[in-house]
Design a binder for these strands. Structure first.
Lengths: 223, 223
DNA sequence: AGTGAAAGTGAGTAATCACTCACTCATTCG
DNA sequence: CGAATGAGTGAGTGATTACTCACTTTCACT
């Protein structure tokens, strides 16, 4: 059920995704208003009446383009999954494996963290909605895990094992190393966007990334 | 506004908290049903009619005890803030600073991670609601940050600086070290409860914690 | 200029929402 | 025993919900 529900609802959705150029003005404004309201108040707390008002559109117009409110949520959210999945898989697969295979690990990690911070900064509201609604909608949660996460993990595992064999990484379990790399990134993102925006801002992104990569590679203990 | 809103709504709430013994049977069942539904579907998607049905109670009974639905949410959530804040501040302040001041850092961290994993495992639904609703309700978000987080940070900063002076920790910025310690913990929790429960379960909690502390202290790189 | 299709509208609908209130029942206390 | 108190009830409230549909407007193409 949930597997096919995911493939039917999300994959179908991604296929049918119009790019912005072939939308009408009003349709674009509906998406924009939904983005704003969903991010601010959440999906269930945002009514279609409010969305229509915010978009300067009749309520009926929403349902002309999206057959239900949930459809509208998916339309807002799906492009981000594509945006996140595609750069991760398409761009970084090249960056990490081809260009950077000879580069030092610290540089690869720095580039990765920089790239992810930028991507999230540029899509803050979308990410917000994605995380919020992943709590409730299994389709979204599963889409995130099975599309983005699993692929990232697969790529990372390969890289980690290569570097382990090359003696650059300690002989630790691959998935533990992966967890640590991801944890550091998530922590960095949380500090920047949630818990301590001002404290974070005392250092530049570059400094924060450099610190994080350094601690990740060499630990916090003195030897 | 938000400062006083926090103090008025949450602090007042915590003061008025009845413990379970002085609740009626029905009141306990209302809280229990709310916990279940809020955790499963979220606050806005759970109706008071549904809560009443789940609790086996008339809808009016809910409003006899809680003057609004939001009041009910706070009643479900507040005890967790107290549970989390109190053990963190009261118990761990002793554990970390008095008993463990002479212990090796690895042991202190291990004890801390073990303790937090247990606490979260025992309150999974509450934590879930707390995080979900922190997205939308500023009072909850601010309560978490200003009560729990700030205090934890203050305590951790002290510990970190002591260990830095003792030469056990590298001379890194305190808040960067704090971020790393917390990131590792959050990552561990996410892997256990969200992304990879099965993968995680291949190793015992103790092993996972030991791995995490090891990577945190000494890094993932070979030297 | 005329036609067909798509875009847009907004009043209307049944369902559901959080919440109220007049009431009953059980318990306690003087 | 009688009065007072508070828990519990469920039908009823107006507001709001997502969604529909008969209709008008816009516009591309002949």
């Amino acid at each position: 059920m949930s597997r096919s529900s995911f493939e039917e609802s999300l994959m179908q959705f991604v296929e049918e995704l119009k790019d912005e150029s072939e939308m009408t003005e009003k349709q674009r404004r509906i998406l924009q208003a939904s983005l704003k309201l969903f991010a601010a108040k959440g999906f269930h707390a945002s009514s279609t009446a409010e969305i229509a008002r915010e978009a300067g559109v009749a309520e009926g117009t929403i349902f002309r383009h999206y057959k239900s409110k949930k459809d509208l949520l998916l339309a807002v959210v799906a492009p981000v999954l594509v945006k996140f999945a595609a750069p991760f898989i398409l761009k970084d697969v090249r960056v990490i494996f081809q260009e950077q295979a000879k580069k030092p690990l610290a540089e690869v990690l720095t580039e990765l963290y920089r790239n992810r911070l930028e991507l999230i900064g540029a899509n803050e509201k979308h990410v917000r909605i994605l995380l919020q609604e992943a709590f409730f909608h299994e389709e979204i949660r599963e889409a995130m895990l099975s599309t983005v996460y699993q692929e990232v993990k697969r790529l990372a595992a390969k890289l980690i094992e290569e570097r382990k064999e090359a003696g650059e990484l300690r002989p630790l379990p691959t998935e533990a190393v992966f967890r640590m790399v991801l944890s550091s990134l998530v922590g960095l993102i949380l500090f920047k966007h949630v818990t301590e925006p001002e404290e974070y801002a005392k250092r530049s992104d570059e400094e924060q990334i450099a610190l994080t990569v350094d601690m990740l590679l060499y630990g916090i203990a003195n030897r």
